[in-house]
């Protein structure tokens, strides 16, 4: 029998994990470049340094499980399987984007992969995840809802309300706290009386675990344990992934609140270089593998940029379309100019 609660440390799987992290990193490097060219506008929150969390957790989920993410969710969308073309087109605001260009960077949605957004209200996704899980629970369906949020959300009332509800009703939610130590520019110690975040779950009788969020294998192992427990009917689980945001909060952040030295220290622990080094030391990957991953990813990104560039702007006549569901007989024709 296949044990689902242990990572499969096959070469293929390890290479896959590496490829996903590289994919996210290079995609976002490209986004930052496109931002300076004003191809991408609005807020742009990069996941640089935190990739091991989405890559460690999301592949543990099944196809019909559900994902709720934050405004720093490009990586989650990509690893969940939202096509890079559709994500990049969304960044451009094109109608081919995964949210028709209405959401942008912060509001990636994808029904096909049960990706429930891109929520830009800190803490706002937690009640939603409780409800998604409540629906599955009431129908006796075996799905798990994974809810990602930063440690900043822990100060919100919705965090506490949601943990209580999920535990009270024994709902299948995996709460994943991406603790990157700063809520925008406010350090954890300046926003929380208890900085050991995972201990908060205990108040709600939720089993929790803290893990090195820059170690993709450790994250995956913890996620497998948690998801197996949830699917076994044990109610919610809480996973704190300790990580660091290596770039600014958004493109408008001068980073006055932290020392450059601190960032450099964390950079030396960053998940991709570290994982690559470990794979090489153990003779699992070779330079040729890394080169081929980089080449594949570069090709995928080039195609995504071309797709987004070639995309169309949604017609202004459709501005109010889908504010409400269309009734039969309404539709694009109704809105045609």
């Amino acid at each position: 029998m296949l044990r689902t609660d242990k990572p499969h440390l096959t070469r293929d799987h390890l290479l896959w994990l590496l490829r996903q992290m590289v994919r996210i990193r290079r995609f976002e490097d490209k986004c930052a470049e496109l931002y300076t060219q004003e191809k991408i506008r609005g807020f742009l929150h990069l996941y640089d340094g935190e990739e091991a969390i989405a890559v460690g957790v999301i592949p543990v989920l099944e196809e019909r499980d559900r994902v709720v993410a934050t405004y720093r969710e490009h990586g989650h969308a990509l690893v969940r399987g939202v096509p890079m073309n559709a994500v990049m087109a969304e960044m451009y605001g094109k109608v081919e984007g995964c949210s028709r260009g209405r959401g942008g960077s912060m509001h990636l949605f994808d029904r096909t992969t049960n990706f429930y957004g891109g929520n830009a209200i800190v803490g706002g996704g937690l009640p939603l995840s409780v409800g998604l899980a409540l629906a599955d629970h009431m129908r006796g369906e075996p799905h798990v809802t994974a809810c990602f949020f930063g440690e900043g959300a822990v100060a919100e009332g919705e965090f506490h309300e949601s943990l209580n509800l999920a535990a009270l009703w024994r709902l299948p939610v995996l709460f994943v706290c991406e603790n990157n130590l700063y809520a925008m520019g406010t350090a954890l110690a300046l926003s929380e009386s208890e900085t050991d975040i995972q201990r908060k779950a205990a108040c709600y009788r939720i089993s929790s675990e803290a893990v090195d969020g820059m170690d993709v294998v450790a994250v995956e192992a913890a996620a497998r344990r948690a998801v197996a427990a949830i699917r076994g009917g044990g109610g919610p689980r809480f996973l704190e992934c300790r990580t660091y945001r290596l770039r600014a909060h958004s493109m408008f952040d001068a980073q006055l609140y932290r020392e450059r030295k601190e960032v450099e220290e964390w950079r030396s622990r960053e998940p991709i270089v570290r994982f690559q080094g470990w794979l090489k030391e153990n003779d699992i990957v070779h330079e040729a593998d890394l080169a081929s991953i980089e080449a594949e990813v570069a090709a995928e990104i080039a195609e995504a940029v071309a797709f987004a560039e070639a995309g169309a702007w949604e017609r202004v006549e459709e501005l109010t379309r889908f504010t409400y569901a269309e009734k039969p007989g309404e539709g694009a024709a109704h809105h045609a100019a």
Binding site: R100, G103, F109, R111, G117, A325
Partner: peptide, 9 residues
């Protein structure tokens, strides 16, 4: 959510 998700949800 309906408008922002492009009518997916």
């Amino acid at each position: 959510v309906r408008h922002m998700s492009g009518n997916q949800f």
